[in-house]
Write a protein that binds this DNA or RNA. Sequence first.
DNA 1: TGTTTTGCTGAATTAAATTCTGGATATGGA
DNA 2: TCCATATCCAGAATTTAATTCAGCAAAACA
Lengths: 156, 156
Amino acid sequence: MSVTLDSIDLAILTQLQQDATTSNTNLAKKVKMAPSAVLERVKKLKQKGVILEQTARVHPEYIDLKLLAFIFIKSSEGPGNISVAKQLSKLPEVLELHHIAGEDCYIAKVRARDPQSLAQLMRDKFSKIPGLLSTKTTIVLETLKESNHLPIPKKM
Amino acid sequence: MSVTLDSIDLAILTQLQQDATTSNTNLAKKVKMAPSAVLERVKKLKQKGVILEQTARVHPEYIDLKLLAFIFIKSSEGPGNISVAKQLSKLPEVLELHHIAGEDCYIAKVRARDPQSLAQLMRDKFSKIPGLLSTKTTIVLETLKESNHLPIPKKM
DNA sequence: TGTTTTGCTGAATTAAATTCTGGATATGGA
DNA sequence: TCCATATCCAGAATTTAATTCAGCAAAACA
């Protein structure tokens, strides 16, 4: 299934990325089409996986997740074996997990309540994962920008 | 203004984080309240900044952003001076920017079309920023998990 | 060139958002 | 302790939006 996006799709994506609660009617006005047509496009964009999800971003502080860290993780796995990654992915504190080039195998973005909680997480969960060799933790002091807004072109 | 969240707020946040398009009516059913009451709560959660935004997550590949990188950036700035950070934050390709502990000053999450585009970005934009001393780029080979879903407790 | 698929419009219908009134309960003085 | 005030919620009324559907036009295709 080939996914080709025209400029109207891109306009819809841009708008919904900015505000997922934009009414269909409003969206229709912006792209100068009938609401029913826009509805159909949005459905297809979701179904095709172009729109991954529509989500509310919650401020971490208010739910007492004041610590953010990036953790570099080495595993003993050879290529093709990703059981360490699978285990890490399951942890809700691990928000992101990327396989990276270079000597470290993975980088994980992790949120926890405080340094103690992070230590506990690593002691209780990370260390139980077979094949996980070592970690190197980078603590975030301050977040200056945190967004998932992609720079979407007007046309492709 | 003190922000205290009760278990109903947490249930609302959990649901909206999972699916920002949940109708107010549906939300009301889940928390067993009148739609009008839930509407009021959601408005307040937004107004207080607990809900930062409601956004559609767009699959980067479909808009031709196939490269993800984490870039460690050193700046010559002393504490309190964040002009380098301000300049970096402005770039749409820089999705995240965090001030980190340790010898590197910042970590940036950056998306670009391909390695060439990233190189170009760094040549054209990064290098123009006064006070930016050096960068160390880590290329992501494969993303195994990428989420902004915080582990929200049932009660606090 | 006929056929099918796709994508749109616009009207009709269903459903939801929003507003508003009123009441209950909690909060905070004096 | 008691009154004034602010919060929070329910439920009805109203406005607005989502959704469905029939029909048309253009593109894609064989």
